[in-house]
Design a protein around this nucleic acid. Structure first.
Lengths: 341, 341
DNA sequence: CGTTCTCTTGGTATCGCTACCATCCTATAA
DNA sequence: TTATAGGATGGTAGCGATACCAAGAGAACG
């Protein structure tokens, strides 16, 4: 309609208009909409009628400015594409919505500097809370969070010292448990394929867990059994092939990224390598896919939905007045033993 | 810090504070931050110094209220979980971010009433633009959009009469093309498994495309060859088994949902049915997975990234002043012939 | 019957920023 | 030198809601 970039909002009806037409004061309209119980039945009906008649939409921007309260939560994930995050995001979104909050989402692409810029931007939007998937942050991010005092949830890992609240599982323990599990099943030459380690504390923790388990199993820690690969089917396939070429005795391989594992599995089918006969395959994160693949794939079940749900719940409680206390929730994980090992 | 729900924003520094400390007027601060070129070098340096010293974060809420302009785009998808949308969301997010916009995301769970509530809520937040994956809307949604005049992009399908702008491919043409492709390859008894049809124009269009192609191929339109299944691996497997039981002569099956197709493929592996020897499998949407499965799966490549990117670009252009004109972009699709057919 | 208390309602002053216009200063032309 | 344009700065008045306090109306009480 307007050809100026400036939004004139079409028929912009405001609260005072509704008040006038309903024959009440703007304050009564405000109250009738936000706390109907504090307004008499009669007033409420008059207001509701006027609101419906004009199709009035309260301006939350003005409301937020005035009340110094916002109903938007900011979320920063490394990648929106990744389906693991998608599960968590959905859960967060659901909980927020049933409590009248909204979600602003941004992705940092695994870069700390980008996280910094995004945290600033979201705080400039005056989000009332933040969810960060990352758990290592630049000093500026830590300062900003401290200074503004917004509630923050960290979810990607269990940090020793959370900024505020944390809801996650331990990447270290999970990787250690799976490696130990493979050892218990009798595998002795266990390869490990990790996602990129740079700017990613989760990957690093998983690798540490792998080595810790090897040590406990009394197996040698051979760095050449560890390969770093960007996530992807082809990369997983490639990593497995390279490991087997350099280590013909490899009897199991643990992929610290689900897509990698599936890529490797397909490669085995292509080459006619029996799984787990020739080589066992274990994965990280319980994609649906892994339960339906042939053979089904042993993996770690991480309750991603629960992480999202509980994160959002903690945030909502805090925003609704719960005392501000450090919380650190370990949602745990579970080893799902299937045909591939 | 505060135990009242009301955010007091910690050390809440405002523009006038910066102005005072920099020895300039608030307007100069405002300009130095938003249009540095209109401010002298000297002033800009003074302002920048004060901004850095206090770690000042402009309050975009106040800015939006004052300028009646917001930099937040609203997005409604049926499901955040679904990785197809995730690709699109990522592309939208990227384009918006490089142009200084933010993304507020919500999911309608395939329900029209929910879309209605969400559109209202997002408009109350005064988003400056909307992206809707759905293309069938309730009257109230259409009215709201018309009244407020916000730019809107529809992306799930190519509507005959877009609300405003549309960027998509034709579900009808895509399904028709794939069905025709199967016919051309010599398949004669082609099953069709569709996602739920309720409140989902995309599914309906795909089914129409399937029947249109059968007609062109001179094949009988047998409704019992069509099955409706909620998306999922197990459901796809189940659908294929049922079709083959009722139609032993089935020689190909077209799944209008990628996960369904993969589920069916796995089922074939489990039962030892050769693909495409016993039955050919075709899918919709080019998940990475399909390119790496064994056998690789014939599918329709839909440029989801491009849809997201171009949607966001159109929106940004409009917001930056491009004239308000109806646009309807068909990004097309592509048949990817692979081993499974 | 007056007093106190509770429940509704309304008026007013912001919230923190930007649009708009007035002002001032410098540079260039006449 | 004066006139004039043009760029840089500042003052003021909102944007559309809500917080806070004051006031009015009944109800309950002694």
């Amino acid at each position: 309609m307007s050809d100026k970039p400036r939004r004139d909002g079409g028929a912009d009806i405001k609260m005072s208009d509704i008040a006038r037409h309903a024959g009440v004061s703007p304050m009564t309209v405000s109250r009738a909409l936000r706390e109907p119980s504090t307004v008499s039945e009669k007033m409420r009906r008059k207001v509701d009628a006027a609101v419906r008649e004009f199709g009035y939409l309260p301006n939350r921007i003005a409301g937020s400015l005035s009340s110094k309260r916002s109903n938007v939560v900011g979320l920063i994930v490394p990648s929106i594409r990744n389906s693991l995050y998608a599960n968590m995001v959905q859960a967060i979104s659901d909980v927020l919505r049933t409590n009248g909050f909204h979600l602003m989402i941004a992705n940092s692409g695994h870069h700390l500097e980008d996280e910094e810029a995004l945290v600033s931007a979201l705080l400039a939007q005056r989000v009332c809370g933040l969810v960060l998937h990352n758990t290592t942050h630049s000093k500026q991010v830590r300062d900003l969070v401290a200074k503004t005092g917004v509630p923050v949830i960290e979810t990607g890992n269990l940090p020793a010292e959370p900024l505020d609240m944390a809801v996650s599982y331990s990447n270290f323990e999970a990787a250690r448990a799976m490696t130990a599990h493979l050892g218990r099943l009798g595998y002795r030459k266990i390869g490990f394929v990790t996602l990129p380690l740079r700017d990613n504390d989760r990957s690093e923790e998983r690798r540490r867990g792998y080595f810790a388990a090897l040590k406990e199993l009394g197996l040698p820690a051979d760095p050449s059994l560890v390969l770093e690969a960007p996530g992807g089917f082809a990369e997983g396939a490639d990593a497995l092939v390279r490991l087997i070429q350099t280590h013909p005795g490899l009897d199991a391989c643990f992929f610290a990224g689900d897509v990698l594992a599936v890529g490797a599995l397909f490669e085995c089918q292509r080459r006619g390598w029996a799984v787990p006969g020739r080589v066992a395959i274990a994965s990280f994160d319980d994609l649906d896919l892994l339960r339906h693949a042939v053979p089904t794939v042993t993996t770690l079940r991480i309750p991603r939905d629960e992480i999202g749900r509980r994160s959002a719940e903690l945030l909502v409680n805090r925003l609704l007045g719960a005392p501000s206390e450090r919380v650190r929730i370990d949602v745990g994980f579970e080893i799902v033993q299937r045909e591939s090992t």
